[in-house]
C-alpha cells in the first residue's frame, strides 16, 4: 500500500508560484486501488480465517498511517519500509526494494497490490516487483472467481474486454479500481490496534539486505533532465456570455466556418 498526495482533490493552493507541487497543501491518502487490493485479501481471509495478511508500505515514517488503516480493517501485521537510502528511487529501484522486503517476510502465496498509484499512474511497480521475485503476475484483477489450496482463478479487466486466468501460487496480482471497494474500519480491530504499536515493524535498507547501487538515485536508471512549468500561450479567443444573442453568434460562426455541418 502506498501513501499518496490526494491529486484528485487539488485545491487552488496546491501549486506553488513556480509551478511545482505544494505537497503540504495536499492531504495524504491511501492510494485508492491499494484499498481495492486490501479488500481482496480480506475476502480471502473471510473464507479462510487462517490466512495471514501482512500490509507493506515504503515511504516516509508518516506512511505508517496506512498500515494502521490496514490493521483497522482486518490485516494481521504491518511492515514499514523507510530509509533515506531508498529516497529518490524510480519505479525500478522501488520494485527492487519492495521485492527484497517481501523476500524478507518469508513464505507467501500471494502478493496483492493496486494496479497503479494516483501520483504517477505508471502501473510499473507491480510487474517490476513480480519479475524481481521471479513469480508470475496477473494484472488488472477485478474479481477472484475461485481459490484452491494451490491456485487462484481471477477475472481481469482489460481495455477492450475481460479475461479469466488461472495461476498456481505464488503469484503477484495487481487489482483494478473496478474491483470491489474496501470495507470500512471494523470497530473491534480499531479498538484493539489503536494504541498498540507492536504489530507494525519498521525495516530499513539494511534489514532487507539491499545492494546500495540498486536503490535510491544510484539504482534508478531514469533521470529527470528538466522540469518545465507549462506556460500557456494564450490564443486570441472570442469572449462570449451565456446570453441568447451570444450563443446564436457562436453557432453561426461555427457553421459559416464549416466547423459544424
Amino acid at each position: 500500500m502506498k501513501q499518496v498526495p490526494d491529486t484528485h482533490n487539488v485545491g487552488k493552493d496546491a501549486m506553488k508560484e513556480d509551478g511545482t507541487m505544494n505537497r503540504a497543501a495536499l492531504p495524504a491518502i491511501i492510494n485508492p486501488e491499494d484499498l481495492n487490493a486490501l479488500e481482496q485479501a480480506l475476502r480471502i481471509k473471510d473464507n479462510y480465517p487462517n490466512t495471514q495478511i501482512t500490509v507493506l508500505t515504503m515511504g516516509l515514517p508518516k506512511a505508517a498511517e496506512v498500515l494502521k488503516e490496514g490493521l483497522y480493517r482486518g490485516a494481521d501485521k504491518g511492515i514499514l519500509l523507510t530509509d533515506r537510502k531508498l529516497g529518490g528511487s524510480d519505479t525500478l529501484a522501488t520494485s527492487y526494494a519492495i521485492a527484497q522486503a517481501i523476500k524478507n517476510v518469508g513464505d507467501y502465496d500471494m502478493v496483492l497490490c493496486g494496479r497503479q498509484a494516483i501520483d504517477g499512474d505508471t502501473a510499473q511497480v507491480g510487474p517490476q516487483a513480480a519479475e524481481k521475485l521471479s513469480i508470475p503476475q496477473i494484472t488488472y484483477a477485478e474479481e477472484i472467481e475461485n481459490l484452491t489450496e494451490s491456485s487462484i482463478t481471477v477475472r481481469r479487466r482489460l481495455e477492450s474486454g475481460i479475461e479469466t486466468v488461472k495461476c498456481p501460487f505464488p503469484v503477484l496480482i495487481t487489482v483494478h479500481g473496478s474491483a470491489a471497494a474496501c470495507r470500512t474500519r471494523n470497530a473491534k480491530f480499531y479498538m484493539k490496534n489503536k494504541n498498540d504499536e507492536s504489530k507494525i515493524i519498521t525495516w530499513g535498507a539494511d534489514d532487507i539486505k539491499v545492494e546500495d547501487d540498486k536503490v535510491g538515485k544510484a539504482g534508478s536508471p531514469t533521470t529527470v533532465k528538466k522540469i518545465d512549468s507549462v506556460v500557456l500561450q494564450a490564443k486570441e479567443s472570442k469572449k462570449l456570455t451565456d446570453s441568447d444573442g451570444d450563443i446564436d453568434v457562436l453557432i453561426k460562426d461555427l457553421l459559416s466556418n464549416h466547423i459544424l455541418g
Partner: peptide, 8 residues
Amino acid sequence: FGGNIIAT
C-alpha cells in the same frame, strides 16, 4: 505530479 509541469 498531478499538475502543471512537464518532465523530460
